[in-house]
Simulated scan of single mutants.
Amino acid sequence: MSEIELSGLEKRYGDELAVEDVSVTIEDGELLCLLGPSGSGKSTTLRMIAGLTSPTDGTVHIGADDVTDRPAYDRTTATVFQDWALFPHKTVLENVAFGLRMQSASKDERRERAREMLERVEMADHADDNPTNLSGGQKQRVALARSLAVNPDVLLLDEPLSNLDKRLREDMQIELREIHEDLEKTFVHVTHDQDEAFTLADRIGIMADGELVQVGDPHEVYENPKNRFIEGFLGDTNFLAGEVAQTTDESVAVETELGQEMILPSNDGDALAVGESLTLSLRPEVLSIGESPVATDAEPETATVADGGTTNEIVGTVENAIYRGSTVRYSVAIEDSSVFVERTVADSGAFDAGDDIRIRWDGADVLAFREDGTRVDL
């Protein structure tokens, strides 16, 4: 069994609290990504699992064993680092076999296992090469093969793809996912790249200021963020300041900085008080855009409630249209504020700066957060 259980894990460096009360169970065979900005504590947490950093408090269990005080060499883990750390005076094969040599495996066993791992990462043709002559992606494959060669119960990956260019990084993400599915071992992968986490993870643990803020599958953490930090960190969104204007048993009306009330469906209108300040999150993918009804002599609609749905509509003026390859991003001025929407090139329409456009969305797609950043459960 290679289940990992972290309980109350804490790390201090003098007066600085780097990791605070991290508790999570990583299931046997699971791939968990620790995701967060620089300085959030994700790498420190990984190093405590690896035995490279001693916790100030808390425990680390791998399987049935308490390994909190065990050194790294006495744990059933292997770590892949960001900088590869290959020996320049050894061949690729010798680098991969090095860990097995430390385990006192025979020469024939070392060479056979190393070649097997090089085959797995598609580097067998480079077995006799000097690693200094390899590309970044090739070096990372060798580092991965070296860690897999010792047959660890747990593979720990500390931002291993951050030094690669975009295309190679995406290719390696797919390869890592396939290797994980093939080996069925427990992987813990640290990254600051949300696309990487969404591609790889069975579950994502989001860290901020040393705390593990939320753990869930990729869909859960994106669709149901626990707080405003997570909503802003994952993807792009429009944050709008607002104030509760009215509540009913079915909906909440919020006066926003766009100069128009936004209607949100609610099963518990009493959860909010009239006059309470909110921040609303309006993701660009939930917005539909079209020709302004003003341009067609039709009356623009406002927020309405019908059949349990809440349709919101507003008219704005395109400030600029930014071509981004596969998408076009429109910045739209509304009153003294602005929002942005994105469309694929095929669906973008022909809007230019100065055009008036209509923006529509369903209030059910809007998330609301209190002043302290906590999510409002409507």
Score class of each variant (00 low, 15 high):
D217A: 12
D217E: 11
D217G: 15
D217C: 15
P218T: 14
P218A: 13
P218G: 04
P218Q: 12
H219R: 09
E220D: 06
E220L: 06
Y222D: 14
Y222Q: 12
N224H: 08
K226R: 09
K226Q: 11
K226I: 11
N227V: 14
R228L: 10
F229L: 07
I230D: 07
F233C: 09
F233P: 02
F233L: 09
L234P: 00
G235K: 05
T237C: 02
N238Y: 02
F239K: 00
L240S: 10
L240I: 08
G242Q: 01
G242E: 09
G242T: 03
G242L: 04
G242F: 04
E243M: 15
V244S: 11
Q246T: 08
T247C: 11
D249F: 14
D249C: 15
E250H: 13
S251R: 02
V252D: 06
V252L: 08
V252T: 05
A253T: 14
V254G: 08
V254W: 00
V254P: 00
E255S: 12
E255L: 13
G259F: 05
G259S: 11
Q260I: 06
Q260R: 05
E261A: 13
M262P: 05
M262E: 02
L264S: 05
P265Q: 06
P265E: 05
N267M: 09
N267Y: 13
D268S: 08
D268Y: 07
D270P: 05
D270W: 14
A271N: 07
L272G: 01
L272T: 03
A273C: 11
A273M: 15
V274C: 02
V274H: 02
L278Q: 01
L278S: 02
T279K: 01
L280R: 00
S281Y: 12
L282H: 04
R283Y: 05
R283N: 07
P284T: 12
P284S: 15
E285Y: 01
V286A: 03
V286T: 08
V286S: 06
V286P: 06
V286E: 10
L287I: 13
S288D: 15
I289N: 04
G290C: 11
E291K: 07
E291V: 03
S292G: 12
P293T: 02
P293G: 10
V294A: 10
V294F: 12
V294E: 10
A295F: 06
T296P: 12
D297Q: 04
D297E: 13
D297P: 01
D297R: 00
E299P: 00
E299M: 12
P300A: 14
E301Q: 11
A303F: 00
T304Q: 04
T304K: 15
V305D: 09
A306Y: 09
A306N: 11
A306R: 07
D307P: 02
G308L: 06
G309F: 10
G309A: 13
T311D: 15
N312A: 08
V315I: 07
V315G: 03
V315Q: 04
V315T: 11
V318E: 03
N320L: 15
A321D: 09
A321H: 02
I322L: 14
Y323R: 10
G325T: 09
G325I: 07
S326G: 05
S326D: 12
V328Q: 00
V328T: 03
V328A: 02
V328N: 05
R329E: 10
S331A: 14
V332N: 01
A333Q: 09
I334R: 00
I334M: 09
D336Y: 12
D336S: 15
S337Q: 13
S337H: 14
